[in-house]
């Protein structure tokens, strides 16, 4: 298992290198920092001098090395608009996005397993058919539409839930959290539901189809022939095998969840990284865009690595393959 984790972490580092290279390429090829820094009247020779001074005339590999070195020390450039280090800007917005993703993940995890399992073991029940029909609609409706409908129903008509911003937050060290106040939690509900609406139906369908397949296998039939209780067969024998593909997909999809925070945060005016990213695009704030790319890349890689390690814990065959 240890060897497996080490190998997986090494792979993660390689992926990070690739992400850093893409980030570097974006910065390198979009815009000319010298032109942004100096006025029209500066001569070409002076411009060249500034380029030399900034290291922009160095060979590309050296510039990339410098970029990585700085990135490792937390320096991803200065945001043109905010006039602050890009990393600081992003990290101040990160808690909002992470809490939103966390809220959506909790909703997905709480509902997808019981509903998925139920629809798999009772595929003909009317409740299962109903869930399947609704989930088809859920997969098809885009997240911003769900968000707007939710705002209309629960915010405008019923007036039960706030629809705008994060509400009251508490600073916890450097972490600005809305999870500790009632107001913050209330504000989190609608955005989380909207964000989860894109994944939850997908997961229910995935768990259902995987589990139905597993229930047809010989080892499940053997488990029945052994006279085990139905709950043990469903929740241990079948479910544990269902988990393997579900975990794999989960690792990939959680990245997509981050992508959808762009839309969700915009509709709900949620002051997170996604909202900031769209602002940065409008302002052509390259440093901030690159920083966003790198930070989201790191999150992606960390989460995927954790998911893979979970997979190894569930699937004994991976563990053996990891043994040297």
């Amino acid at each position: 298992m240890f060897a497996f984790i080490v190998r997986r972490v090494l792979q993660a580092i390689v992926v990070m290198g690739v992400i850093a290279f893409i980030g570097f390429s974006v910065q390198h090829s979009i815009g000319d920092p010298v032109r942004d820094m100096v006025g029209e009247r500066v001569s070409l020779a002076e411009r060249e001098a500034i380029r030399d001074q900034l290291g922009l005339n160095d060979p590309v590999p050296i510039q990339f090395g410098r970029f990585c070195w700085k990135a490792l020390h937390g320096d991803l450039g200065i945001s043109y608009f905010h006039k602050r280090p890009a990393l600081d800007v992003i990290l101040s917005k990160a808690p909002a996005t992470l809490e939103l993703v966390f809220g959506a993940t909790v909703i997905i995890l709480v509902f997808c397993f019981p509903v998925g399992i139920y629809t798999a073991i009772r595929p003909r029940a009317w409740l299962s058919r109903f869930v399947m029909a609704v989930s088809t609609v859920g997969v098809a409706v885009p997240v911003f539409l769900t968000a707007i409908v939710l705002i209309y129903i629960f915010g405008v008509e019923l007036r039960w839930l706030p629809t705008y911003g994060r509400g009251e937050t508490v600073a916890l060290g450097g972490w600005d959290t809305g999870l500790l106040t009632a107001d913050g939690l209330l504000h989190l509900i609608l955005p989380s539901v909207a964000l989860s609406s894109i994944m939850l139906p997908l997961y229910i369908r995935l768990i259902r189809s995987e589990m139905m397949e597993v229930l047809e296998t010989e080892y499940i039939k053997f488990a029945w022939a052994k006279g085990l209780s139905r709950w043990r067969i469903w929740l241990l024998h079948a479910f544990k095998n269902t988990l393997l593909p579900v975990i794999t997909v989960f690792g990939v999809e959680i990245g997509i969840l981050f992508a959808f925070t762009l839309l969700t945060e915009t509709v709900f005016q949620w002051q997170g990284m996604g909202f900031m990213f769209l602002e940065a695009v409008e302002r052509s704030d390259t440093a901030l865009l690159v920083a966003y790319l790198v930070v989201v890349g790191v999150m992606f890689v960390v989460i995927n690595t954790l998911v893979d390690i979970c997979y190894g814990l569930v699937n004994p065959m991976v563990r053996v393959a990891g043994n040297p």
């Binding site: 296998t217 010989e218 080892y219 053997f222 022939a225 544990k240 393997l244 699937n315 004994p316 065959m317």
Partner: peptide, 12 residues
């Protein structure tokens, strides 16, 4: 059962 490769649960 017929096929011992399929009869035992792979994850237990």
């Amino acid at each position: 059962f017929q096929d011992p490769m399929m009869t035992l649960n792979p994850v237990l």
